[in-house]
Computed example of a mutant assay.
Amino acid sequence: MMDILLQEDSIISPLGFSTSENIKAMKAGNSGLQFHENLRFQNGGFYAGIIEAALLADNFSIIGDATKFTKLEQMMLLATQSVLNNNQLDLSETALIISSTKGNIDLFGNPQNFSKDRAKLNSLAKIIQEFFGFKLKPIIVSNACISGGLAVAISKRFIQAGKFNNAIVVAGDLVSDFVTSGFQSFQALSATPCKPFSKNRDGISLGEAAAAILVSNNKREGDSVSLIGDASTNDANHISAPSRTGEGLYKSIQQALKESKLSASEMDYLSAHGTATIFNDEMEAVAFNRAALAHVPVNSFKGFYGHTLGASALLETILTKHSLLNNELYPSLNFEELGVSKPLNIIQKIEKKELKTALKTASGFGGCNLAMILKKSFNG
């Protein structure tokens, strides 16, 4: 089977407008989560990772007129441009895969002189397609909070099927009134910056980000990271609550390991979904233990970014890739005392460690679950 390589990437977030800026900020212990006042909320506001609009527009002005594009479009276009800058791709043969859960949904409450049709995901995909001149019809992936990672997995499957050799995967979501109100109605917003897997966790912090990556079967010199196994399984448990037994996530992990021809004992690192809700973190702990992964160093990136919804699994896959390339484990920020019923090996500080393999997981509303196996290759 051909190698499916994760190549150039970009992250646009409150921590920076490139992957390198984001990693530098994480290593400095910085978090994008800040308190945002809003009297509609019980605590007078909420913690979230929100990109400063003026700063975004200033950066976007290098490639286009910010007044012609929504905030989300600017984020996703910037991320895509950064990936394309470093590649000589034939866009007539390169796939474009778009991932978002809500797209420009904020336009329904604040049109900002844009048509409400811009809120449709196919409109978002068309804007990105036409801005850069992609010729193939964009593929849209919107499957709750596994969307960004699932888009990478789908690109792998299409490349292996011979549909194309290169794909740009770009994901993005905003902290909108719709999303914050929804999670508030679940009483799932944390009163403090979120604390994944901690005993005193009380919910999520939201975040917004865009991320993009080139997925390709074209080998290059130097060390690389390949996606060698993936699986997505739905636990069919509840529209918003995960399976208490972790069945869907467990099956996804088992199937991804089977495709990769690796065992749980060969995993060097585990990047979890880790939303810091009571039920999600418990479900993951159960699934990881069922899969014999309790010993593997594990973290959640949500303490740095908040939950970036459809962008989260792609953003975290990119960070997992760089953990492998840098032989570096990043801490699960804000972790205090383990608060799940099963043992986990939580990463609490930056660690240098020889890494070759990693497992990235994600879960979402509707019972969807995703597991991806990444492997580093050493090339001359």
Results as ranks from 00 to 15, higher is better:
Ser265Asn: 03
Asp268Pro: 00
Gly222Leu: 12
Leu262His: 10
Ala236Pro: 09
Ala241Phe: 11
Ile253Leu: 04
Glu259Asp: 11
Arg220Glu: 14
Ser216Gln: 08
Glu247Pro: 07
Gln254Met: 07
Ser243His: 06
Arg244Asp: 15
Asp230Leu: 07
Ala211Gln: 01
Met267Gly: 08
Gly229Lys: 01
Ala212Ile: 03
Ser260Met: 01
Leu214Phe: 08
Ser243Phe: 07
Lys195Glu: 07
Asp230Thr: 09
Ala264Gly: 05
Asp202Lys: 15
Ser252Phe: 05
Ala212Gln: 10
Ala209Tyr: 10
Ala211Asn: 10
Ser216Asp: 08
Asp268Glu: 09
Ile253Ala: 08
Ala264Val: 05
Cys194His: 04
Gln254Val: 02
Ser265Tyr: 05
Glu266Ala: 02
Lys219Gln: 15
Ser260Glu: 02
Gly207Ala: 03
Gly248Trp: 01
Val225Met: 06
Ile253Arg: 15
Ala264Phe: 02
Thr233Asn: 13
Phe197Pro: 03
Gly207Leu: 00
Leu257Arg: 05
Lys199Cys: 09
Asn234Gln: 04
Ala209Ile: 03
Asp223Ser: 11
Lys258Glu: 07
Glu266Leu: 03
Val215Asp: 03
Tyr250Phe: 10
Ser224Ala: 06
Asn217Cys: 09
Glu247Tyr: 11
Glu247Gln: 13
Arg220Thr: 14
Tyr250Asn: 05
Asn237Glu: 09
Arg220Ile: 13
Ala231Tyr: 04
Ile213Met: 14
Glu208Ala: 00
Asp235Pro: 15
Ser205Val: 02
Ser224Lys: 15
Ile228Asn: 14
Asp230Lys: 00
Leu214Asp: 05
